[in-house]
Design a protein around this nucleic acid. Sequence first.
DNA 1: TCTCCTACCACCTTTGAATGGG
DNA 2: ACCCATTCAAAGGTGGTAGGAG
Length: 630
Amino acid sequence: MLQDKGLSESEEAFRAPGPALGEGSSANTANAPEPALAAPSLSGAALGSPPGPGTDVAAAEQEMLQDKGLSESEEAFRAPGPALGEGSSANTANAPEPALAAPSLSGAALGSPPGPGTDVAAAEQAPLGALGQTDMSPLPSPPQTIENIKVGLHEKELWKKFHEAGTEMIITKAGRRMFPSYKVKVTGMNPKTKYILLIDIVPADDHRYKFCDNKWMVAGKAEPAMPGRLYVHPDSPATGAHWMRQLVSFQKLKLTNNHLDPFGHIILNSMHKYQPRLHIVKADENNAFGSKNTAFCTHVFPETSFISVTSYQNHKITQLKIENNPFAKGFRGSDDSDLRVARLQSKEYPVISKSIMRQRLVSSQLSAKPDVSPLHGAHQALQHYQYENGAHMQFAAAEPQDLPLNTFPPQRDSSLFYHCLKRRADSARHLDLPCKRSYLEAPSSVGEDHYFRSPPPYDQQMLSPSYCSEVTPREACMYSGSGPEIAGVSGVEDLPPPPLSCNMWTSVSPYTSYSVQTMETVPYQPFPTHFTATTMMPRLPTISAQSSQPPGNAHFSVYNQLSQSQVRERGPTASFPRERGLPAMCERKPPSPHLNAANEFLYSQSFSLSRESSLQYHSGVGTVENWTDG
DNA sequence: TCTCCTACCACCTTTGAATGGG
DNA sequence: ACCCATTCAAAGGTGGTAGGAG
């Protein structure tokens, strides 16, 4: 699987120690594009919901793009598990199918975290369904090639460590990178076919969390999803040979909580749980998505799910970050006398962070208790669905409740070397009043009911479709680099890499409800259906995906990237960090029309994907077309 | 009162241009 | 003139902390 390779992105700065890719962990699902139906679905669905991708998209695309199938591996969240480990990710082929199937994949999948095992399957299924495809239906034959693509998560072991502790990712106004960074090893691609790789991050469930008692707990309903954005790998589009030659790194992807972020970073809400998803889209001969059948597949590695935070809550996570992230080396210490401590001690007063204090206290409190982390106990089951058409879907059953996020064994106190505290009192207080406030009164936005209808227990929610529904539409895509690097793929007729180096954004308004064109018209989520994609190109026609759209209508528009550049240039520079890459972005050349189309496609797809998660989508009826690399 | 967010800090890695040697 | 290795400063990434907002 892994064939050598270096990282595609130049960056690869950090490799974590861990083992490399899991073994073919992810599976793909190939989505076979579908006929008409799909089309509608595409729009909103894709991006919005996580898992869903395949489905709708397919449909939509079919019409538009013909070929392609998406494969989503939905796998939304599976618990940390082991399951994923190696072949963890599953694929789903998108074959559009009748609504029925839907249930299986429907939205739940992606959207929801891994709930306990069970769901996974369900979840995944849901997504597919959502898209319009139905997984199970025998109808169309599954796409062929795309489903052969395998994706292995790099440093899976490291990811697992974090996952077991309840991964947290810092989000800042300026944007913060993810660590561990998302890197994958891709195999099974057609060396000469061009693909576009992108990532989106979808809500794992519809809850807001709070960290108390040394574990993550649901604190209320999730806030309206942020505008969805996609991060397109800078090398895209590139040939299969290029992608397979080296690790594909998404290290430069940044997360922000700034709803008005002008950089194209992925926007998230703090204290919410998310699941990154990798989408592989086959580019057409023009490096675009214009063809009728655009195939794509989605890979989800449950262990990459995380809770976004503005400051670390779990000390164990902090320690893992410090120990493994080169940039945090300054905080490492050989032992209690680490540099940081020394530094702190040099100050007039010793300091101890609240989190540390909290944890310490908690640890002491819990020390007596056996470590019963759900995670450990959790067993995940990986299920496979074999579609008649041959598509595979794997579902990992996660454990109930969030294992991952929840508890974690008492920290090894060695890490808690801070002695004197400043704010000890406060910390203590926190401990005493854990979870006191349920904060969240999530704004009950209109339509919420639809979303969270009868919210299942947390555990279940992870799996439940409803969860997916929450998924927000994704807004933006960012093309950051250009494809120069693509160059030399042997055997490939490399067209000059299209100037993808541009950022694209698609914005979705919150609270849309989409209905993918499905046989049934079901109001999707209360999220906005409006998507805008910013690209360098002129505004593209809107892809309306849904025929029946409930309340929200989905708009899919592409804006000229120029505007983006302008934004940057004039934007509140002060607050914006300067990024090295930035210049490049500004300099981006407009992509070819084809490319634009591709982008559009992509977006639409994504939207679909996300939306799929919701069961509502399942219905999609689509005919599945077989996807062929050729 | 409590939770969360932001700005800032010091420390570190990464990057890329400049320089020198072969 | 070219290539490669080394050096160095700037850019950028990190978690911790203080203070503020709600």
